[in-house]
Design a binder for these strands. Sequence first.
DNA 1: CTGAAAGCGCTAACAC
DNA 2: GTGTTAGCGCTTTCAG
Lengths: 339, 339
Amino acid sequence: MAATIRDVARLAGVSASTVSRALSLPEMVNAATRARVAAAVEQLGYEPNRAARGLITGRTGTIGLVVPDLANPFFAGVAKGVQARARRHDVAVFVADTDEDPAAESGLVRALAKQVDGVVLCSPRGTDDELAAIAQDTTVVLVNRAAAGLPGINYDNEDGMRQAVAHLVALGHRRIAWVGGPASSWSTQHRGVGLRNAVQALHVELAPVGNFAPTYEGGMAAADQVVATGATAVIAYNDLVAIGLLARLHSRGISVPGDLSVVGVDDIAMSRMARPALTTVRMPKQEAGRLAVELLLSLLDDPDAAAAGTVPAAATYEDLHGELIVRDSTGPALGRPGA
Amino acid sequence: MAATIRDVARLAGVSASTVSRALSLPEMVNAATRARVAAAVEQLGYEPNRAARGLITGRTGTIGLVVPDLANPFFAGVAKGVQARARRHDVAVFVADTDEDPAAESGLVRALAKQVDGVVLCSPRGTDDELAAIAQDTTVVLVNRAAAGLPGINYDNEDGMRQAVAHLVALGHRRIAWVGGPASSWSTQHRGVGLRNAVQALHVELAPVGNFAPTYEGGMAAADQVVATGATAVIAYNDLVAIGLLARLHSRGISVPGDLSVVGVDDIAMSRMARPALTTVRMPKQEAGRLAVELLLSLLDDPDAAAAGTVPAAATYEDLHGELIVRDSTGPALGRPGA
DNA sequence: CTGAAAGCGCTAACAC
DNA sequence: GTGTTAGCGCTTTCAG
């Protein structure tokens, strides 16, 4: 049986309340007694029972993390960041995977909410209203999704797209295809906006080919439509899609980057291993997770602000900057129709 | 404020204990009162506070999962399985990532142990003694690692290697290189044994090229040594290594499978996307996670057995069967030296 | 600065 | 079948 606070108290010859204070408000207790308590704690290997503490303080020392799919390298990266930073704060992390099921999401989060101090929702698929409802129950920090009034960590998708377009234009491309992800996805929308702004500013053409699953298969499915646009370059929703494109283009004997340049987004590990290696916009995944934890914990420490939605502007959200990683899948535009 | 059991009791016109019973031992309470309680629960949206319950029952309804690296697709798969199955049992999962740091592992697990009913340790790097010490603190189930007396879920590595060798031999290969993973890795050792048995049984040669990091870079590093063995086929520790091999062989102008056949292990998503697509031994990742949860929960329900190490043999461990997935990276042996 | 007492929300004996 | 009582391990008034 683990030692309790009373065991420590008895051994140190003090009361339980003194032990409690010595541990949480050290200044409030005499240095000598504090030392005796410390010795007893050491000797017994005492660790306070967090459940018992939580019962009275109302804080569990636990946060929740909800992701659509742990097996997706992007989310795995975020989870790693969340987890590492939480540990630094001595906070435990409940992880839940919705399996890309938007219907399950809300219920899952509600269930989680009862057991944690707050939750990090990564790329939630729910509607803004659903998210708002969840935020009634518990403190929420969003990652990779903006919803009115909710604090979150986001990527500067517009700028990432600008970098990708600038790179392609510098290579001589004048017509760029765009393979969007799920229509409901917040990043699809923002990448689309960034793309339209960028092509307009640089006086080139954008050829959107619609919305596809954010997977390898989605890329395979999109490839032929991309070719049909006559574009000499294509930007894909993410690296998985870009790698799917690569595969199908290869089967069709279309050379990358000879005939078509391909750009992805995320810089998952696989991108380096693709052939040709994939040019991509690196989105700092772990960093997003770390920042989300910091933001969440700061909200928890200042519940008034969080409740009123009056989080200091600086802390409300943070736009993470993507970085273009140039690899072999992009090269100079050659004389294809539309070039 | 969330409703408490007393709010429900008041609303239903019964005592708190009756509510408690209606929820956990429904048979012990009159159908009529049970209905009244149910209605009150419904109306108030009551959910029992798990921390409070845990304080008295000694069970937290939470398990821990410790993995070396969440960003590794193999562990992500296991985590997904653990997480999904735990949810089915209404059990929450604390996830901790040791960041491949064996030194951090033990401390991390001990800290976790205080807050959970039991832990799943996936591919732990610690020594058998360290694991035994952890098992003193809490109920442990191992995944992908056998240690004396501890229950666990493992893969039948011997058989997986046998399948891979049989496949290669059928293709006419007579000399097979083996790129091992970390020497301390349990699976490296067992795959080595399986390999030696298989080549012996089939009267072909094995050419081990040493131990490499279980990564893409490890594969890159091993490639030239593999070529130097004169083997016509190579089996890599895992898919990441195999994909690294593929990359380096490609740079050197060595054709796969024309000059050399390559086999990986795990069947991570990336394998399908490699070029040529990678022949591999599929290790059921999520399945391992699910079984680990089932095993852990069954141990928790039968603490005597767990404590005494007298788990029924059938439940002690399970050997998961790998399945050879043949793709384009393996083909008939051609006339190379040693063939 | 320290101790006694109360109680967080819940379940488990024990009565009725 | 149901209510009463006690107490899980801890923190927090409130006295002193």
